[in-house]
Every structure is written in structure tokens, then in C-alpha cells.
Design a protein around this nucleic acid. Structure first.
Lengths: 139, 139
DNA sequence: GTAAGGTCCGTACTATGGTACGGAGTCAAG
DNA sequence: CTTGACTCCGTACCATAGTACGGACCTTAC
């Protein structure tokens, strides 16, 4: 039964290439339950749109600083249609993202200070360590 | 012999506690050249303000997404008073920080969308995967 | 003067996120 | 119907950033 347009049957190599990861990475995700291992019609497994979407999702989520464990959790919530759980997880992640963003902004400002103090002509101290002592406790 | 204000002689345990890290972490940093190993007057090594500052710096820089290798580099630049190098490194890190921040913001917005779509009453699909397909190609 | 607790040091182990390797099977082209 | 590329699978290995362990030594208090 040739169900569905065969246009969607990728081998693991094609799938990996399409998602911009390595074959080994796909296999790694399979081992870790992030990606289903499709059954095979013969010796070789075939993948479709959904796996590709999933892979891309994983990449996006990683870029968002999710760990693979968290991503797995998200995917499970999705599979289980657990709206409640998904919302909760999303909210806690939003919190975490905000924290991380604030942290990075603070750090970036320290770096800016550093770059300025070590500026072109100047001959002052350029104190890398103290550049990070950001908020002097001017209690 | 009580030489000098004994205020500044910390043992490794005190140092670690003061910086909010574990003793093993201090030793790990020493092994990796991030922290000098002070000579010892007797069997036990003693630490002062500068080591504490350095440790705190490392923590700050880590929060700023520097790797330990990069932090080591920064510390060397500091020691060598290499203004040029420090400025360059700082600038490249500022770039990286901006990128990371933007990435996190995008992710956070995806999460917000997700939380909203999975909102209280609705019974639709709550599509976690598509929540991350951020920029819908509304070509 | 001894017992508790801290330090010293090397080595080993952990978790995370892959990456590499080797042998066997499979598939498509020529 | 063979060759070469690709797949399958297990196992091993890598870097990063620690954490844990065990025996020896030191220090301090009682």
C-alpha cells in the first residue's frame, strides 16, 4: 500500500541534511527518545515531514537554551495534548528566559565598559577584572 | 607569628565559601590555570583578596556565557595589560551577547505564543511544535 | 597528646551533547 | 551481478565543567 505521496520518504542522510544536522546527531536523538525510530519497509528506515519538523523544532528549542531533556518533555506534552502541562512549562521557561536575558545584558554592559576603558588612545588601567565588578555596592 | 593583618589569609575552604563555590571547584580552576596556586608557608596554602576577586570575576564572566577558556584568555590579557587584545575580545563578546540575547528573545516570544495558544479555555490543538515555527512564511 | 576536622593531591567519575568507528547489510547504477 | 555509496547498530571517544574519593598530612582544641 503506497499510501501518501512518496515524495516524503527521506533516508536518514537526507533527513539530516535537510535539518542541517549530522546523521549521527539524528541517531543520537533517536537513542534519547527525542525522535521516533520509524519502522522499515526493508533494511532501511524512511522519514517524512513530521520527523523533519521535529528535528527543526529541536534546533529552535536548543537555540532557546532548552536542554534536550526539556525538549523531550515539551514533545511529550505535545504528544499527550497536555495543554495544562505545556502552558506551565512554557511559563517557567519564559521566566528563565527573562532571567537569562537580563544576565546577558548585564554582562554585555560590563563588556561595553571594558571596551570603553580600554579604548584606543587612553593609557589608564584597563582593568578587566574590575570591569565586571559591575554594580559597586554603593549601599 | 601573626604577621600582617590576618584578615586576608583565607584557607581554601574559606575562600571557596566566600566566593560561593566548592573547594573542588577552586582546585579545578587551579589545575586549569584560572587561579594561581599560592605558595605555602607551611603545609597549607593561604589566599587573599586578589584570589577572591578573581574567583568572583570568573563567576560573573561565566554568567555572561564566557567559557572557562575564554575567561582564562581574559585573565591573561589582564595580566599582560594587553589593551588591544582585551578590547578586541570584549567587542567580539558583545556581538555574541547581542546575538544570544536576540535568540533568547525570539524563543521567549515563541513561548509566549505557545502559552497563549494553550490558553485556559480553548480546546484546539495547542501545537507546541508549530509555536516554534516562529516566522510563518506568510510570503 | 590525641582526636576532629581541614587541607593536599592524584585519580576517577558524572552529565551533557554530540562525534567517530567498524563491521554488516542494503540499494541503485552500470 | 558487482561496485560503491549509503544505512544499521553497538560501542567508544571527545570537550566542557565540574564532583567525588581516598590516603596522607597539618592544625587546633580539648
Amino acid at each position: 500500500m503506497v499510501r501518501s505521496q512518496a515524495g516524503e520518504t527521506l533516508t536518514i542522510g537526507k533527513l539530516a541534511a535537510a535539518a542541517g544536522v549530522g546523521v549521527e546527531t539524528v541517531r543520537f536523538y533517536q537513542r534519547n527518545g527525542l525522535l521516533a525510530v520509524p519502522s522499515r519497509r526493508s533494511g532501511i528506515r524512511h522519514y517524512g515531514e513530521s520527523e523533519l519538523r521535529r528535528l527543526r523544532f529541536i534546533k529552535q528549542a536548543q537555540a532557546a537554551s532548552f536542554t534536550l531533556a526539556e525538549i523531550a518533555e515539551l514533545l511529550e506534552l505535545d504528544a499527550g495534548e497536555d495543554r495544562e502541562g505545556a502552558r506551565t512549562l512554557a511559563k517557567s521557561r519564559i521566566e528563565a528566559s527573562n532571567k537569562k536575558i537580563a544576565e546577558l545584558e548585564r554582562a554585555r554592559d560590563s563588556l561595553k565598559r571594558l571596551a570603553r576603558q580600554c579604548g584606543e588612545g587612553s593609557t589608564g588601567p584597563c582593568p578587566i577584572l574590575s570591569a565586571f565588578e559591575a554594580k559597586k555596592p554603593r549601599t
